[in-house]
Amino acid sequence: MAVTAETIAPLATIEKSQGYWRSVWTRFLRDKVAVCAGLVAAGLVLMAIFTPWIAPADPLQGSMIKRLSPIGTEGYPLGADELGRDMLSRLIYGARLSLFMGVVPVLIAFAIGSTIGIAAGYLGGWVNTITMRVLDVLYAFPSVLLAIAISGALGAGILNGLLSLTVVFIPPIARVAESVTTSVRKLEYIEAAQASGASSLQIVRDHVLGNVLGPIFVYSTSLISVSMILAAGLSFLGLGVSPPNAEWGLMLNTLRNAIYVQPWLAALPGVMIFLTSISFNMLSDGLRSAMDVKQ
């Protein structure tokens, strides 16, 4: 190269353009609905983390005389459940397990599913065909049925519930990962990278991951609400979390007999599930449109 180091701009002066994630953030902030959903979701997460400082009472401490107190009873702002435990505190504590059961299986499934999907998508050919057909078999079962079947076989308990939900979410995430990777693999910048002599691992690391993880992640976040609802369903059937733990699905189950006596009270855990799942869904919708790069 004839040009000497002096004639070119030193590295530090390169004008750094607004990075991709910065621009996603800017676009996200313009989306009012998504920002609101994000705030609600963040609030719920904070609530789950700081539970002991927020909850006014012990969620396990019952009182026979306060059983099924209506909303607004003194000392029980949201009433008391069928064992006289403070509803507000139980709902706040419930956020911990419910969010845990919503987020953790999806995160694990995201890690496993995207690895399988990206590998299948990038390698293509027979590897792809075999992997995807195997996943299709799992995918053919309705997710509720699959979760119940696995949980039923493994028995009740948080860990087993977690495992069954993870298995349920791997196939859909792997499918999305495979299709996103397949479409990226056909782009010419991948061909250009291949023509550079880079190894497959290098290409996946430097050119594929950055372009596929975003969309896969967004899809995965939309599964959080599904996971929460499934977990609640498992608890409701007595397969997931077991009493006396506070978990919204389980609370819905134990309060179902009270629906004729205190319908509003019985509906509260359902309201929480609804609020959480809708805020996570809208958040992922907002992320999806913010990540849509236009030329």
Binding site: I14, S17, Y20, L187, E188, Y189, E191, A192, A193, A195, S196, G197, A198, Q202, D206, H207, G210, N211, V293, Q295
Partner: peptide
Amino acid sequence: VQMVFQDSFASLNPRMTMIDAVAFGPMVH
């Protein structure tokens, strides 16, 4: 032997700066 493609947009990784895109090849080698 190198190649330049028709679609200038599709042949650049959307997440890479132009410096990084050009520097990738020499780094591979």
